[in-house]
């Protein structure tokens, strides 16, 4: 997509924004001028550049069917992410990508699928859930386990509620800290595993969230007899180039930007237990 140096971003116009929570916004991006349309696979990310401020990896959180705009959901945690959440309709952002490995959608066909997300980890798996529900007949049972810190921190809340009303999917949501109006589950997301119905021998699990959350989720799924090679994690590491050349994202021998972010659990099992790797 890029001409010139691979570190040169394309320029994309913000077609619209939506506030998801107090600090989290979804940007709807038009394809860059020199690209006909966006193409990506669920699980991949783009490097988004805020003019003069910096560039960070942001997962693709979906695509609007009607106009083909691409969605990125950003939480303001620092300089660059805050600048990205300040962008408004009509402004521009730099884009490089898409990069990285996708979720194993093909493998999931004909199997039960567990999608387990923590916090903003729902963003990179939202395209997965959408695909599962749109092509519902291709998959076995569909289970979404989602944990947020508090009800106010639930991203895509209306969409999650819509998913929850479907009879052909099991959507379990929990919060660490309930508010008075919260009638749902309270507790860590791993406690939901026991409540869900799935056939562990014929399941694919896709995990996305903070590394500790994923570690505990793996343990819970393992104790429910889900095999190691049926679990997939999306890893997060510092990234500068996204093409395996800057060295920042190394996790053992893997470059998370290129060999990940989605990695099969058995491949990273031993490394995950080493602190500060």
């Amino acid at each position: 997509m890029n001409i010139g140096h691979f570190m040169t971003p394309d320029v994309s116009r913000v077609a619209g924004t939506r506030r998801e929570t107090r600090d989290t916004w979804t940007l709807r991006l038009e394809p860059p001028r020199n690209a006909a349309a966006w193409s990506y696979r669920p699980g991949q990310f783009n490097m988004l550049y805020a003019f003069g401020i910096g560039e960070v990896p942001i997962s693709i959180s979906g695509q609007v069917a009607g106009d083909g705009t691409l969605l990125h959901t950003v939480r303001a945690v620092g300089r660059v992410s805050a600048a990205l959440t300040r962008l408004r309709k009509g402004e521009s952002v730099g884009v490089r990508g898409p990069f990285g490995t996708p979720w194993p959608m093909d493998l999931a066909v004909g199997r039960d699928v567990i999608v387990a997300a923590g916090g903003l980890g729902l963003a990179p798996v939202r395209p997965v859930v959408r695909t599962l529900l749109e092509q519902r007949g291709k998959f076995g049972r569909v289970v979404l386990l989602f944990g947020a810190r508090s009800p106010a921190e639930i991203v895509f809340r209306r969409e999650v509620e819509r998913w929850g009303r479907r009879r052909d999917a099991e959507v379990l949501v929990t919060v660490d800290h309930a508010s008075p109006d919260w009638a749902g589950h309270v507790g860590v997301v791993t406690t939901l595993v026991k409540k869900a119905a799935f056939d562990p021998g014929n399941t694919v699990a896709m995990l996305c969230g903070p590394e500790v959350m994923m570690r505990f989720m793996v343990a819970a799924l393992r104790s429910s007899a889900v095999p190691d090679d049926a679990m997939f994690l999306s890893m997060e590491r510092n990234m500068k180039c996204a093409i395996g050349q800057c060295g920042h994202c190394q996790f053992g021998a893997d470059f998370v930007c290129r060999d990940g972010p989605v990695l099969r659990y058995d491949r990273v099992r031993d490394r995950l237990s080493v602190r500060e790797l």
């Binding site: 550049y49 003019f51 003069g52 560039e55 500068k240 180039c241 050349q245 800057c246 060295g247 920042h248």
Partner: peptide, 10 residues
């Protein structure tokens, strides 16, 4: 050693 970083400046 090949590691690099980038600085975005104005």
């Amino acid at each position: 050693c090949f590691c690099t970083s980038v600085d975005d400046l104005t």
